[in-house]
């Protein structure tokens, strides 16, 4: 469960954080809505951009956008809400280095199905707990003492 395999995290950290890796992706809006077009600006001409939806999850999806000819900026709109990672390989400094930018893509308005699941789960869980609490204390009101009678205890 704990899975302290840090290698991916460290690689990302080292690539993104090393002094040589100053190449970057500037975005016009860090939290756009789904379908909202934003401008991405690169520090050097980029020929292809990888978009990863739900990065680092087992259900992540990747899409590669091609820039032909390579350019220092492009327009992009997310197809899905949630965390999205944009990355490209920067070859300007000799060795190719991955440059990454994470974004939080907002829902377009209110997510009806999300709200419905949240309310449904909340009502079942908190409602169920309340109902069970009431049952627990009803027994007490009906005559069973809250402090148990030691005579009633299992013989151990």
């Amino acid at each position: 469960m704990i899975r302290m395999r840090l290698i991916y995290l460290l690689l990302i950290l080292l690539i993104a954080g090393s002094p040589e890796a100053r190449a970057s992706i500037e975005v016009s809006n860090h939290s756009p809505e789904v379908g909202e077009t934003i401008t991405l600006t690169f520090s050097a001409p980029v020929d292809s951009l990888t978009v990863t939806y739900r990065p680092n999850s087992s259900v992540s999806k990747t899409e590669v956008l091609v820039n032909n000819p390579p350019a220092t900026s492009m327009e992009w709109a997310s197809k899905e809400p949630g965390l999205v990672s944009l990355s490209y390989l920067d070859r300007s400094g000799g060795d190719a280095q991955s440059v990454r930018q994470d974004l939080s893509i907002r829902f377009e308005g209110l997510s009806g199905s999300g709200l419905a699941v949240m309310l449904f789960a909340g009502i079942i869980l908190f409602g169920g707990a309340t109902m069970a609490f009431r049952t627990l204390f009803q027994e007490q009101d009906e005559g069973r003492p809250e402090v148990f009678d030691p005579e009633e205890m299992p013989d151990t």
């Binding site: 704990i2 899975r3 302290m4 395999r5 840090l6 460290l10 965390l83 974004l103 939080s104």
Partner: peptide
Amino acid sequence: LFVFTLNPAGSTLSLSFF
């Protein structure tokens, strides 16, 4: 996670400890 665009890469403990 969403407000600060925190990408929980790596491990399970990384989310709470880092």
